[in-house]
Write a protein that binds this DNA or RNA. Structure first.
Length: 404
RNA sequence: GGAGGGGUGGCCGAGCGGUCAAUGGCAGCAGACUGUAAAUCUGCCGGGUUUUCCCUACGUUGGUUCAAAUCCAACCCCCUCCA
């Protein structure tokens, strides 16, 4: 969508040209600040799950572009805000997580960032902080007097996150109602600690972000800005992040490299150009070149570039090589494997590889003509497969039987 | 507090004493066509069992029946209207 403006600062110009910008506050002043010198910006991430997923990728890429343009990114782990729970875009309150669960999720999540931004002590090196560090020590009455007085209930009631709940007569607890205040306070705290002047996030965060920028202006008398991305959906209307098979995790231990690569490889034709801009480092000129060629080659390029960013070049190349070999009729190393001591039936092999949830489902797969051993369709469910065999379910799912 | 309506398979939504593992739609999986895409058409779509067999399922717990998702009772939860 974008705002159609032209920007003087490389950072905003890049975001705009690549489709990252949905809304931003005082574009002219932010552009001037970013053009003039280094700025510090942040994005917060909740720790409600064990890993971030590709729905978070747009935000992560913005931090990457921020750093690439010579600015300083701050990754805020929402150890504290996760305890409150963001009502934005939700009909119901999320179950509250305990400290141990949040800490575990946070530890798992932080590893994903190391591939996208460079952490360190240099001026534009990324910083990671946990907002629990300052939120958990807040004293109630002093907080109300310093921060709470700047928030108008009248206005808070008009924010979408609150209004939608009230309009639908869904419950909204006082705890959740405070989320925006707590997030606004984060921005203030980051402004004080790091001179952070920009908060970015998804479009559902607009209210929270503006709240923070307002708070900084009122308390510190300084200007701060907010920027949101559009909600990225696939051509079929589905949201990024999830497929019917489950969340598309960034962490390798939750989703194998090959599966991650395959996911991008199977991108809808209509999404390829857009995704190349959002999820790879290729320049716009390179993308034009790629798109001018074969669409399937473009998808391979998207898959390899996106996988390299998230999982490393080596993993991306291995996945690409495996795909080339496997879909060329052979088999690649990165395929799922099932270790057996002696030959098993095709049914057990399909279940063992995770291609069928039950023997009944495996049976149906065979009956429907979808099962293959070494490329040959299996018609008899009694067929045995031993180590070295390649088992396929449909055209896209392939696995290897190996010896224990 | 009073009066109604409802809770069904991943989701939506029929069924309202046996013929119900439960119509239909969506999602999903597979086949055909293709390009590891989309669209379209076809099949499958609780679990086990080499299959006119067994198990588990229609909010929960009991009951009536030869037989219940379907009837009764109590309880839990949701919605609407009245106070």
């Amino acid at each position: 969508m974008g705002c159609g403006m032209t920007f003087a600062s490389p950072f905003l110009a890049t975001l705009e040209s690549r489709g990252f910008i949905h809304q931003l506050t005082d574009a002219g002043a932010l552009d001037a600040a970013a053009a003039e010198g280094m700025i510090t910006g942040y994005i917060g991430f909740d720790c409600t799950g064990p890993s971030l997923h590709i729905g978070h990728l747009v935000s992560i890429m913005m931090l990457r572009h921020l750093q690439a343009a010579g600015h300083r990114p701050i990754v805020v782990m929402g150890g504290g805000t996760t305890k409150v729970g963001d009502p934005s875009g939700k009909d119901d309150a999320r179950p509250l997580l305990d400290d141990a669960a949040i800490a575990a999720n946070m530890a798992s999540i932080r590893t994903a960032f190391e591939r996208f931004v460079v952490f360190g002590d240099g001026p534009s090196d990324a910083v990671m902080v946990n907002n629990d560090d300052w939120l958990s020590t807040i004293s109630y009455v002093p907080f109300l007097r310093e921060i709470g007085r700047h928030f108008s209930i009248n206005r808070m009631l008009t924010f979408d996150s609150v209004r939608l709940r009230l309009d639908r007569e869904q419950p909204l607890s006082f705890l959740e109602f405070n989320y925006m205040i707590v997030q606004a306070y984060d921005f203030l705290e980051l402004n004080r600690r790091f001179g952070c002047v920009l908060q970015m996030g998804g479009s559902d965060q607009w209210g929270n972000i503006v709240g923070g920028a307002d708070l900084i202006r009122r308390v510190e008398g300084r200007q701060a800005w907010g920027l949101t991305t559009p909600l990225i959906t696939r051509a079929d209307g589905s949201k990024m992040g999830k497929t019917a098979a489950g969340a598309v995790w960034l962490n390798r231990d939750l989703l194998p490299d090959f599966d991650y690569w395959q996911l991008w490889r199977n991108t809808d034709d209509r999404d390829v150009a857009r995704f190349l801009k959002l999820f790879t480092d290729l320049s716009l000129a390179e993308i034009d070149g790629v798109m001018a060629g074969d669409i399937n080659a473009a998808k391979v390029r998207l898959a390899t570039e996106a996988t390299a960013l998230c999982r490393g070049q080596e993993a991306a190349d291995a996945a690409a090589a495996t795909a080339a070999a496997t879909f060329g009729g052979g088999a690649g190393e990165a395929l799922p494997k099932f270790a057996v001591a002696e030959p098993v039936t095709i049914l057990d092999a399909l279940v063992g590889l995770g291609f069928a949830a039950s023997k009944g489902e495996a049976r149906r797969l065979v009956a429907g003509g979808g099962a293959r051993v070494d490329g040959e369709a299996v018609v008899d469910e009694g067929v045995m497969v031993g180590p070295g065999g390649k088992v396929s379910a449909g055209k896209k799912r392939h696995g290897l039987i190996i010896a224990v």
